[in-house]
Design a protein around this nucleic acid. Structure first.
Lengths: 306, 306
DNA sequence: TGCCGTTATGCCGGAAGCGCATAACCTCGG
DNA sequence: CCGAGGTTATGCGCTTCCGGCATAACGGCA
């Protein structure tokens, strides 16, 4: 019998040793494990070779653990249990039975849709453990990539990353332009994109809100001009104060019109091409029942809010 | 390629998956792991079959973890680390490098020998982590059997269990008989065992102090009579008070003569056969350097105290 | 002494797993 | 458009691993 250097499954070997020590007999343990005594005897030898020391004292009436055998029992028993539990949970998840659902969203953008959708989910799957995280689009994308989120509600910023995950579009919002109250445009009922040619635009840090500037640029290009970003700020909330202090403009999805911001007026853009998509992203691989249920609920809510 | 149902080593497979996800490529991970890409590809497939779900999304430019893949990374990475650490420690112990030493002893019996032996040990192996446990002989034997002690200092009570462990005799004590101060024997310089024939003996609970009564019985038998145990008490300390209140006697190892007990006198037994052995027991299998060092130190101390 | 329990080990055959070669796909540069 | 270079999947053949069967050796007990 050559010296074993590849050892079947070490965990199974360790489990077998636990059984042998419990029975105090290789033979009786073999019966329990439904293998023959010689196979089990060899497994024990292989384990001893792998660890470099005797685990069992062999006697005519059975076996007794050595000091090393006792130490292995002590350190490995909890480990084997944790391992089995983790594997079991992973198998459940593979079957779609994961009961935890980690959702990322930006509150101001997602609340009107997420709240009713979560109510539906709670009604249909009450045992689901929800973990809700209010975070920026960048954090959402990173969270999905790192496997820390199961699902993200995200706007146009998630479109570029959509191919990395499962995605579905929930709705397409109108776009408005934000201007200072004192701006002549503020009195308008709506405005065409081309009328913004020559105005200063406020951009946002591409790191925090990925794709926002590119989206604005693409829209203006379709209207025949390239926007000049006078200032680039590091967050959405700073955009509006800069619009006022710089007498500039910025393009925003229509849900901003619902937010009151002192000194700022939101004027709808009339161009039909000016749309802001709102999407949901979730991890590739088999989605859990909970994930699918939430995606469905979001679809239904979006359909009724059209 | 038949469907894999026995999976080599699951831990190695999981480790390989962690590498694949880290590299984002089966090919580059295979290079790192020093196996070919096809072998690694199959390992990933085998793992997916075992778990019942896809762990990796395959793309022309490499692989990306699915939601299940992410979940596996999260739950298994700490487990793999703990497992590797535990195996590593077991291998060290197998080589005799265990740095922890759990010692059981009965303080009153062992102190005069243990204290100087521990001083020697601390000098020769200062990094050893000692765990000292004052416990009854029964607890000592149980602790060894359960693998909770590495070494026990024990008297005659350990002799019957000695074959289960490594053992060595440290010394052999004289025996004395304990009597009440008012007893005529109390004025004797020494006494022969046969002179105790007809006296009431006090026994101890065999469960707490295994073998004590059998030892007394054997000694008396060698002197031609069988002792009658008038009372059996549940601990060594209660023996002496019963000696007084029952006007009885009991045989004890000579170290008791060093202890002051009100109303009790200890008279040496003159029979040469009346001996009390003091032994050290340690676990079977390869003993650690620390265990061997302590056994050696105890031997040296016993030799100087002769 | 014989029987029954124990563990270890030789021999054999089947299963597992790896390497090599190849197929298929995608991306990029000329 | 084509070729080069990257990727992953899979067929085939060979080697290694491992379990079952049979047997040897030992100890305990009636």
């Amino acid at each position: 019998m050559p010296e074993a250097h590849n050892l079947g499954d070490m965990m199974d070997r360790i489990r077998a040793l636990l059984t042998v020590i419990e029975e105090g007999s290789v033979n009786r343990a073999a019966v329990r494990l439904r293998i023959t005594q010689p196979a089990l005897s060899r497994q024990m030898q292989a384990l001893e070779n792998e660890l470099g020391g005797k685990l069992l004292e062999r006697e005519p009436s059975g076996v007794k653990p050595t000091g090393l055998g006792h130490a292995l029992v002590k350190s490995m028993r909890p480990l084997v249990e944790s391992y089995d539990t983790a594997l079991s949970e992973l198998r459940r998840q593979a079957r779609g039975e994961r009961s935890e659902l980690r959702v990322g969203y930006l509150l101001s953008a997602a609340q009107s849709m997420l709240t009713p959708a979560l109510a539906k989910l709670r009604k249909s799957l009450p045992e689901v453990k929800l973990k809700l995280h209010d975070m920026s689009p960048r954090e959402q994308i990173d969270g999905l990539r790192a496997g820390e989120l199961d699902l993200a509600l995200i706007g146009q910023e998630g479109v570029a990353a959509a191919s990395e995950f499962h995605s579905t579009k929930l709705c397409s919002l109108h776009v408005c332009v934000a201007v200072a109250d004192s701006d002549p445009i503020a009195a308008r009922k709506s405005i065409a994109l081309k009328e913004l040619k020559g105005r200063d635009f406020i951009g946002v840090d591409e790191d925090q809100v990925p794709g926002r500037n590119r989206w604005s640029t693409a829209l203006c290009k379709s209207a025949g001009f390239k926007p000049r970003f006078a200032v680039v700020v590091d967050g959405i909330t700073n955009v509006l104060s800069q619009v006022v202090s710089e007498s500039a403009v910025t393009l925003l999805p229509g849900y901003f019109a619902r937010l009151q911001h002192p000194g700022v007026t939101f004027v709808p853009v009339s161009d039909e091409k000016a749309r802001w998509d709102f999407i949901v992203l979730w991890q590739k691989g088999r989605a859990s029942t909970a994930t699918r249920a939430l995606v469905d609920a979001l679809r239904q809510v979006a359909a009724t809010q059209r």
